[in-house]
Amino acid sequence: MDKVLRDKKAIAIFVVPALLIYLVMFLLPILVTTYLSFFNWRGWGEMKFVGLDNYLQLLFRDTGFWQNVGNTLVLFVFLIVVQIPLGFLFALLLNHYTRGLRFFKTVYFVPMMISAVAMSILWNKVYEPNYGILNQLFQALGLENWEQLWLSDPQMALYAVCFSVAWQGIGFHFILLYSGLKGIPEQYYEAATIDGASGLKATWHITLPLIRDVLKVCVVMAAIGALKVFDQVFVMTGGGPINSTMTVAIQMYQEAFSKMQYGYGSTIAIFLLVECLVIAWMLNTLLSREKIEY
């Protein structure tokens, strides 16, 4: 093995294909998109160099853009606040109560296995105001006042979308956190019980610190998922009504492919990339701490 690791040719044979794929599939598109962001281009014909004008337009003149950033941030907060605590709660429950373990593990993880588009169509039907199951349920329970225009009311639509996006991702965080919990040796809890710490205390002082790294991964994944969310929101609302659920990713799509403003769409794509990198770095920095050992 050491001989192979010292052989530069052998290393190159293993590394080059992956490196090439990375360059072609990731770096090259980023470079091309950056290049396009300095142009005014309709997807055909002449490309007009506009310097930083697309960036100035995006940051200072496009009034809708900041509303879309706001919507994306609401989703960002919602996913972190809902997905991770619920995923953790389910992981804790299944870690303690092993009855029906397989069944519940499957139930929690099923939404992750179904395509986001299919899931979004399903939620559209749930929220449908005339025959949707949610309003029908409220009617059946005599709670007509609770009926809502879930996706048609601009005040309500974003939260309805956030809920369904969050719901789909809970299973992912549950699996990560459950694996983290399984990695904590039972002796720690036994020692804690002898010292009088059990239940919530043990969770707070033993479980949480020991799965801190897993939690960090969950937070970063949830944050990036929220910032670049597209398919679910696009299928459910298309960014409407009256742009109340418009995210930065949907705006990017609309500018590039509906309005055929490829240059401006590329500018939004670069913003999205930088935003994801900055927030991921910030979260990594904020949540970094020396590894705890007991």
């Binding site: 105001p129 225009l149 996706l151 048609s152 639509a157 409407g240 009504p241």
Partner: peptide, 20 residues
């Protein structure tokens, strides 16, 4: 109809064809 702002044309058609 209720929810018209987020109803697709085909969903609306279904209600119209159903006599609603």
């Amino acid at each position: 109809q209720k929810g018209y702002l987020q109803m697709t044309p085909s969903e609306m058609n279904e209600l119209f064809f159903a006599g609603k």
